[in-house]
Design a protein around this nucleic acid. Structure first.
Lengths: 236, 236
DNA sequence: TGATCTTTTGTACGATAGTACAAATCTCAT
DNA sequence: ATGAGATTTGTACTATCGTACAAAAGATCA
């Protein structure tokens, strides 16, 4: 037997630390940070409230650890897929592959950590909406590199589109991605059962196709106003 | 009895009820429902905590009233704009006008109630992310009609696209819309200051153009798999 | 003016929040 | 087996939560 696993992990035994992380992830992702108490998490994990304090010190620390667990693997996966996508010859296919490299890791397991990236992405969406400070800091310093790499890659595929437009459109992509994971049932409801919002594969295909088309839209003239203003007179 | 000065001319006198509503709207929209206490709201409105109970009975009641205040006017405005949009002759212009009819009221003041629809839309985004029950009920029964009318109108402009695809793409639109209002600073950051995420007019133009292009994307073959799978082998 | 209704204030209560901490329990190399 | 360190448990403390409620203050009209 090896020296000592000490504070690492023993996967062979029910690991309380992991159980707490998984429970917290699920609860935070569905109810938000503030609506979930440490006691809720402990109960869902079959643990004692004090155990959470022991492992993560504070509730913020718990959230921080969830991010730490997922950010690395997910960004790594995105980098790999992005690198592969950039090698695609055909321009149209390359753009699609780039978008896919961004979308797929968000939906599927980026690391098989506690059951998949979709839950973590949903968590990010919720934290972003709640304006959570802990999440905001981590996100900005962890995902901005990836986002820039993605934006640059798209821009290389579409050199005639201003970078500003690419930024906006990739922002829309992330919003659509988040919302698809937050309220999938709305898709089922509005399609009157014809579509399943929870079907990740379907969501990915729809999102990728729509996003590719959005990226390929003609550039916006920033100086000149829109070519016309058909109906709306927006005032405020 | 007829009381003239109370509810009608109240604009010149500090109306506590309105002040509480405005403060709650702002705080909920930026911090989420659970992170904001009744005392926070009262303090921001310059009122007494008991006053909130008096006017709205419960915290949920306060949220409910915020929705009641905005849903009607915003949906009315959307209906008007949608009706006008449907009268546009040119097909491409009509689609754009339809999208604009959906987007503009969400960004600008739908009723000039307490300073604009953007704040209320941001509130809806946050409540949606938090899975707030009160909001979920109201949203489903208040906005689904509008959403269906919008989807139908888009579908009429693009008859060759399956309704399912339209539903997905309009879902993405709402997600992008929400996210633009929730974290506008991300656009500024990622564009390195070249774009201002808080510029509503700019956001509207970008969103409308991107969405029109997304709607016009070729239909997804639902039976057949994607024409290829360039890079990704998603497994989980 | 005084009577009556509406609104605001101040305070308090029970529930629950996050977290600290000591005791109990478990793990494992020796 | 045993002792040391790691983990879990149970409990308690303080702060804050939503809300109730009585008293004070303000408004309205005979």
């Amino acid at each position: 037997m090896v020296r000592k696993p000490t504070s690492k992990e023993a996967a062979r035994k029910p690991n309380m630390r992991e159980a707490i992380l998984a429970a917290a992830e699920e609860l935070f992702a569905t109810n938000g940070f503030n609506a979930v108490s440490v006691r809720d998490i402990a109960q869902a994990a079959g643990a004692n409230p004090g155990s959470v304090t022991y492992h993560f010190k504070t509730k913020d620390g718990l959230l921080l650890e969830i991010y730490r667990r997922h950010c690395g693997p997910m960004n790594l996966r995105r980098s790999e897929l992005l690198a592969a996508a950039k090698r695609v010859r055909d321009l149209q296919d390359r753009l699609e592959a780039i978008v896919r490299a961004y979308v797929v890791p968000a939906f599927t397991s980026g690391s098989d950590l506690a059951g998949g990236g979709a839950r973590f992405t949903r968590l990010r969406a919720v934290m972003s909406a709640e304006g959570n400070e802990v999440a905001r800091k981590i996100i900005a310093q962890t995902f901005d590199d990836t986002s820039h790499a993605f934006i640059d890659a798209v821009h290389e595929s579409l050199p005639h589109i201003p970078r500003t437009d690419i930024v906006w459109r990739s922002h829309f992509l992330l919003g659509a991605l988040y919302y698809s994971l937050v309220t999938p049932e709305r898709v089922s409801r509005l399609s009157r059962g014809e579509a399943d919002g929870s079907d990740a594969a379907c969501a990915i295909e729809q999102l990728v196709q729509a996003t590719v088309a959005a990226f390929q839209a003609p550039a916006l003239d920033q100086a000149a106003p829109a070519r016309r203003r058909p109906v709306v007179g927006s005032k405020a």
